[in-house]
Design a protein around this nucleic acid. Structure first.
Length: 612
DNA sequence: GCCGTTTTCGGCCCGACTGTTTTCAGTCG
């Protein structure tokens, strides 16, 4: 749950790498090529977070700071374009955590790219101070002290001062703090800040297994954002139930991947693994495991909302249990914690304070999709292009993964690096696939293609060739840097092609390495509904594309989502698990997902997307 | 700065750990 600094901060890590802040904020609202750059939700959220950072350093009322952070979180996961809402004259105070003042500021930011009140703050405090909040051990008070007494404004100056031993002169700073700050700066300059969920899993599961083998340890659960299934994980929160906390702590310190013990107390410890990931471990008594699990799973915002509910009922909720006065009334299981505040059990993947509390209260929680609900996979590759196995091997692997149908969707000719298929090879594959289908039992192959969407929005193969197939999966594989308008028009034009079933990896993002291309996703989702086609939730752990926010929006707009593996090898069907977790975070139920349909029903839905 | 099944004012989640202190502020999750 790290990265939720100051109580509610959710955007840890980004600022640290961005030494030049003008890169982040200057482009908003400036004119480039004669076009006004539109102000997007993430820009508004970033400004609210900057407000919060600077107000915090300025020693403002902490609840006021929290209000800005809440507003940033609301805007970030809104799903709709704030600028559109403003243009339509909608009442922003209807949004949670946004009152008259922040609504006015949001409008001002959308219209001008900044806010007067922020500029006022920036005049008094350098914006580069925000980056210092990313250093563990440095909070607003100490940053302000460093700024006032030593004139330290940024990381470079902080590092220089620490090296020169000047920090010790400031009240409240000692030798250890100075050493720690310097170590952190050096370590973080090279380390990756957030890990893919799949990467985190590689490190987390063996460590959890190691801790489980400690005598007296009864439970080990990886909590935090890992348990909530976030697409990236900042650090690992591991919860241990043990009779002897000391033994568990010793066991942790003995783990051979531990590079550094950053903190260690009687029941808590923080270590850094050799790979750079930080692991926070807490030991609790067995009777508290439910309360602790709820507490350390988060999210912070969800916990606050639940505790507030408890407070209204005269209950105090902490990691040890739920208390009425001195009496402990719940905490052995997570369900008992929810029950104590009058709620049914809420799945970890929903705990983001995005409406799950209200839904739980009124009995409208979704029945989330599970892996077993998937009947097939609609996006996979073979060695005919850039896959690593033949048709038969992929079919058998899909069957072994519990699927009843698999669409083979190799690349099209334009993607030369993958030796994409032209019409002739596509027809040849069609024949092989048909023959194989007669032979196979228990699994049915569908024939499709992952056809390139060209720059002008046309598809890479003629409709006459595509019409022979069961489905057409279409994707953008180049020209990522078109303007928002052009990129959006490109995809919408492609959707209007005679044969277009599924838009694959709709945003094009690669987590930790490539930003999504600039498109108007709400418009694309609405167009998909009109057109009657579908959107993919690509389950590759570095894609997980659609994002949970837009995936939920697709659901709200009644657009079916296909959870696809994009398998390039037989083992890749296991990645469907990540897609399912992401789908759960988007509140998807079985009926919201295209490939939960039985084959006959699926064929009917696909036929509607193909010219006859 | 937000918000109201008691409230338009007075609340706003809660405990552990560290380092620098001599009893606790600041930070963190």
């Amino acid at each position: 749950m790290k990265g939720d600094r100051g109580g509610d901060r959710e955007h840890g890590g980004i600022h640290f790498l961005c030494v030049n802040h003008s890169e982040m904020y200057a482009p908003i609202g400036v004119r480039i090529d004669g076009d006004d750059m539109p102000v997007h939700n993430k820009d508004v959220a970033a400004i609210f977070d900057e407000f919060a950072d600077l107000l915090e350093i300025d020693d403002a009322n902490p609840f006021r700071v929290r209000a800005y952070r809440n507003a940033a979180r609301t805007v970030r996961s809104l799903g709709r374009d704030l600028s559109e809402m403003v243009a339509a004259g909608e009442d922003l105070t209807a949004l949670p955590g946004i009152g008259t003042d922040l609504a006015a500021k949001a409008v001002e930011i959308v219209q001008t790219g900044t806010a007067k009140a922020l500029q006022e703050l920036q005049r008094r405090l350098p914006t580069s101070l925000e980056a210092l909040l990313e250093i563990p051990g440095l909070g607003p008070k100490r940053i302000k002290a460093l700024y006032r007494e030593l004139g330290i404004k940024n990381l470079d100056q902080l590092e220089a001062a620490a090296r020169a031993g000047r920090l010790e002169a400031v009240a409240g700073f000692g030798m250890k703090t100075q050493r720690h700050i310097l170590d952190t700066i050096v370590a973080r300059r090279t380390a990756e800040r957030r890990f893919l969920l799949s990467t985190a899993r590689e490190y987390a599961e063996p460590l959890a297994q190691w801790l489980r083998s400690t005598p007296g340890v009864t439970d080990v659960v990886i909590a935090g954002s890992y348990r909530r299934g976030r697409e990236t994980v900042g650090d690992l929160d591991i919860l241990v139930a043990a009779r002897d906390p000391e033994a568990a702590m010793n066991r942790l310190a003995d783990y051979d991947e531990v590079a550094q013990v950053a903190a260690r107390g009687g029941t808590r410890a923080a270590v850094i693994l050799a790979c750079g990931i930080q692991v926070d471990v807490r030991v609790v008594a067995r009777e508290s495991i439910g309360a602790a699990l709820h507490y350390f799973t988060g999210s912070k915002a969800h916990n606050i909302a639940v505790r507030r509910l408890g407070q209204q009922r005269g209950l105090r909720i902490n990691e040890y249990g739920v208390y009425k006065g001195q009496r402990r009334v719940a905490g052995k299981t997570e369900a008992s914690v929810f029950r104590a505040v009058g709620l049914p059990y809420i799945q970890p993947t929903l705990r983001e304070d995005r409406g799950e509390i209200d839904a739980a209260r009124s009995g409208r929680l979704p029945v989330l999709i599970e892996r077993g609900d998937l009947k097939g996979d609609l996006h996979s590759h073979t060695a005919e292009t850039d896959g690593r196995a033949d048709l038969r091997t992929m079919a058998r692997a899909a069957q072994a993964a519990g699927l009843q149908y698999l669409a083979i969707t190799d690349h099209s000719r334009h993607l030369t690096v993958a030796r994409g298929l032209d019409e002739r090879r596509l027809r040849k594959q069609h024949e092989s696939l048909s023959r194989l289908n007669e032979e196979l039992s228990g699994i049915t192959l569908l024939h499709g293609i992952e056809v390139d969407i060209l720059e002008d929005g046309s598809l890479d193969l003629p409709a006459s060739a595509l019409a022979e197939l069961d489905l057409v999966v279409a994707a953008v594989h180049g020209q990522f840097n078109l303007s928002r308008t052009k990129q959006t028009e490109r995809i919408i034009r492609a959707m209007d092609s005679p044969c277009f079933s599924i838009l694959a990896h709709p945003s094009g993002r690669l987590l930790n390495s490539r930003e999504p291309y600039d498109i108007d996703m709400p418009r694309i989702i609405r167009h998909a509904r009109q057109r009657g086609c579908f959107l993919e939730l690509n389950a590759q752990p570095e894609r997980l594309d659609l994002s949970d926010t837009f995936c939920r929006m697709a659901r709200d707009e009644d657009v079916l989502v296909a959870v696809n593996s994009d398998a390039h090898a037989p083992g890749d069907f296991a990645k469907l698990d990540y897609g399912i977790v992401q789908a759960q975070r988007a509140w998807l139920e079985k009926s919201d997902v295209l490939n939960t349909r039985p084959l006959a029903q699926l064929r009917k839905l696909l036929r509607n997307t193909m010219a006859s």
